[in-house]
Amino acid sequence: MVIAIGFEGSANKLGIGIIKDGVVLSNPRHTYITPPGQGFLPKDTARHHREHALSVLQQALDEAKIKPQDIDVICYTKGPGMGAPLVSTALVARTVAQLWKKPIVAVNHCIGHIEMGRLITGSKNPTVLYVSGGNTQVIAYSERCYRIFGETIDIAVGNCLDRFARVLKLSNDPSPGYNIEQLAKQGQKYLELPYVVKGMDVSFSGLLSFIEEKAPELIEKGEYTPADMCFSLQETVFAMLIEITERAMAHCGSQEVLIVGGVGCNKRLQEMMGVMAEERGATLFATDERFCIDNGAMIAQAGWEMFRSGITTEMKDTTCTQRFRTDEVEVTWRK
């Protein structure tokens, strides 16, 4: 029996989760929400994490009904992410590891998403679409590595959605993407937007510039409503994501597809992926906002896998890095 606690703070969510052999004991999270029209800045986000770290940790321990001495391993996000928030969260992990005299494991954030998705959905060897505010990747496992088959060649899909939400001054509560999704449900009229797929890679920056420039004008003239714009944006970017995922599945001969990351809880994306999977005779696996959006349990789960395969991180190596690719990690816990 191994109990792992995970600390996640790579972006604007601070999450601390406890996992005991594949069972989530607790997974509280606190999100830094900025006013409409604004994104979150590293310095302010780090301050948010510092302010809430201890209360969220206490909540995690209380909900799990365990004491610090019951924990076997401390896991924290090494990267990728924003520097200041990562460091402030890692500091808490390092401190408790030394206070409680427990081993510590540095975890790749993206691997955390994948392992959590596999745990919750029970999928064996899926093609993974990882979509969030900072990442857009199509990943498949082969020979001890999560290989990246396709990815964005500029900005992430979540970043594209978030930045368009700022143009429309949508609320950031609970997240800009969620509010785009709700508004898109009322959209009727489809506006054709730049659709850029290159092999298994996608690009969103041209589309974003286009819609940022056109939207205010089209809305003012009354040709399209903000809802129509959200609808058109979602339909276009999600179609691009489904297309590259399907390409990767065809390429790898895969019959399972898993969506992870914050954008992964979008119901329309899941629906479109479901249709594609059905047409191919494949199975879709997806989770809800508890596990799709950044959380502590996913770091605990990946760390739990690593710890059981014999990996721990020396205290002197418990650093953070803003850039840490999914395919840099040797996957020692899978065959």
Binding site: S10, T77, P80, N135, I153, A156, D201, R323, R325
Partner: peptide, 13 residues
């Protein structure tokens, strides 16, 4: 340049 963009792009969780 494209390699650099792909591999070293700031990747925020």
């Amino acid at each position: 340049e494209v390699r650099l963009r792909g591999r070293k792009r700031t990747m925020v969780g």
